[in-house]
Amino acid sequence: MSTVASPGATGAGSTTTAVTVTRVHRLFAAQGKGSSVSALEDVDLTVADGEFVSLIGPSGCGKSTLLRLIADLDQPTSGTVEVFGKPAQRARLDHDYGIAFQQAGLLPWRSVTANVELPLELHGMDRRARRDRVGELLELVGLSDFAKHYPDQLSGGMQQRVAIARSLAEKPKLLLMDEPFGALDEITRERMQNELVRIGAETGAAVVFVTHSIPEAVFLSDRVVVMSPRPGRIVDVVPSDLGAAERRDDSFRDDAAFFHTVARVREHLHGTPVSGIRGVENQ
């Protein structure tokens, strides 16, 4: 099975890559008495157009840092980050990606509708078109009834869904998601996962997805990138291309190949072979 440049839904022979991270280091300088932290060390990562890549690893291994570098919210100490063949900064200025943060990061003084339409408003879409798009997005995340609510009137999981809708607002070709389903219950989570697979297939967007859940990573991804902490490194990349996006439905969750891949990712995470697939952690 081909792994490194597995084609996404767009396929069509396009050879461009969505993300190219080359020999990236990120050192956080010591502040005061604390010692400096090497959050990322010698990280190489390529995400093809339309490819779904998950980042998984223990807390503090640099997943969010890597995502922030791709989003040009932070700069590498050395190495380069390119998005769609451009420097990360250019891609950010061109609105090439959508992002959902680890904390929902909604604006509390704005209604759900106003939060979701923020990117569209900032980039000058007219009001009528904005309202239509927001309607679609809220439908998608199942919050149509809460359009006029404010973030402090929503549960944590609902807030995250609003943030996801916001990240999808401009139909970006690249989606950066930092544990977006962290606060969701299992049922909503699986529904959102199915939706995300569908959105990925429909829009042909590449996705870089941070998660702590091995089954989630395996279910969603073409490849699972396993990271280790201090210094943050990529330990291994596990292909999970067990089928095209169309095949990733609920039946896939019970597939033998699915459990096999889950076990492999677990092995890499723990650094030792793990026998059996019982007790797969889910959070």
Binding site: L73, R92, I99, F101, G105, L122
Partner: peptide, 14 residues
């Protein structure tokens, strides 16, 4: 201003 809001605005090149 919360850091996540600053990041949000920066990500949208506001």
């Amino acid at each position: 201003v919360r850091p996540v809001h600053r990041d949000l605005m920066r990500s949208h090149a506001a």
